[in-house]
Simulated assay, not measured.
Amino acid sequence: MSRTGDRPTMSRDINPILKQILELGPTIAFFLIYIRIKDDMFTLGGTEYTGFIVAAIAFIPILLAAMGILWWLTGKLSKLQIFTAFVVIFFGALTAWFNDERFFKMKTTLVYGTFAGLLGLGLLRGQSYLAYILSDMLPMRREGWMILTRRLTGCFAVLAVANEVVWRTLSTDLWVKIETFAFPIALMAFLMMQMSLLQKYLIETDTSASGDGSRGKSDG
């Protein structure tokens, strides 16, 4: 059970495939809209916009709708999802206001860079903020959490730098494809590889026991 202010709310599980659709669907929708209108120009309020900027603007309500459905079905949203939505809205608004696609491209750098910075700050304090967020779902010893946090901090930093290189040196078409597919696939592959390497740090839980303290704890 989670709490919103003073009002308790129940977290609910949903079909994992539906959850993935709601989380990844907006990005795929942005890609499809962009591919469809990338060569077109649109006049809105007397200002002419490229297909990329229109697709970026359309991405915002699609993302908010998907997050609203996810919250309605599960009763919760992660802090990372809320932060990402805020960044998308902020940089999407800047993109529309200044009619400059560079703002929307930079948002990916900010998201990955912020994740790297926050995890790195925790490491400097001798803590794993990752464990604080995920330890309930993935019981693991402190040593494992610290290793994973260090590696993920480096991964996010590399992705942030890679995004800067890609959008500044390659075409918009290539950036959209890399942003939509390459970055998420690289991150997913990295995480899957880490889970394999960190198996020895996982804490096994005894689902047949209840209230006997058999479940391990991570001190993150």
Rank of each mutant, 00 (worst) to 15 (best):
M1D: 11
R3N: 12
T4K: 12
R7G: 01
T9V: 15
K19I: 00
I21E: 00
I21D: 01
I21F: 13
E23Q: 13
L24G: 12
G25H: 10
G25C: 04
P26R: 03
T27Q: 05
I28Q: 06
A29E: 02
F30G: 04
F30T: 01
I37T: 10
K38F: 09
T43N: 12
T43P: 05
L44V: 15
L44S: 04
T47Q: 12
Y49L: 07
I53S: 07
A58H: 03
F59I: 00
I60A: 11
I60Q: 06
P61Y: 10
P61I: 09
I62G: 00
I62T: 09
L64I: 13
L64R: 06
M67T: 05
M67I: 02
L70G: 01
W71H: 12
K76H: 11
L77P: 08
S78V: 02
S78P: 03
L80I: 15
F83H: 06
T84W: 07
A85Y: 05
V88Q: 02
F90T: 14
W97F: 13
F98D: 15
N99V: 10
E101D: 13
R102P: 04
F104W: 13
M106G: 10
T108V: 14
T109H: 07
V111A: 10
Y112Q: 06
A116F: 05
L118A: 12
L121S: 15
L121C: 14
G122Q: 05
L124S: 11
R125I: 03
S128V: 00
Y129S: 05
L130Q: 03
A131W: 00
I133R: 03
L134C: 05
D136L: 10
M137H: 11
M140A: 05
M140S: 06
R141G: 08
R141A: 10
W145V: 00
W145C: 01
M146R: 00
L148W: 02
T149Y: 00
L152A: 06
L152F: 14
T153D: 06
G154S: 12
A157C: 07
L159A: 14
V161D: 04
N163H: 08
V165N: 06
W167V: 02
W167G: 01
W167S: 02
L170Y: 13
D173V: 12
D173P: 06
V176K: 03
K177T: 09
E179C: 08
T180W: 02
F183L: 10
F183N: 03
F183G: 04
P184L: 01
L187K: 03
M188Y: 09
F190D: 01
L191K: 04
M195C: 07
M195N: 14
S196Y: 11
L197G: 05
L197A: 13
Q199C: 03
Q199D: 13
K200E: 10
Y201L: 07
L202A: 10
I203M: 09
A209C: 13
A209Q: 15
D212N: 14
D212R: 12
R215M: 08
K217P: 06
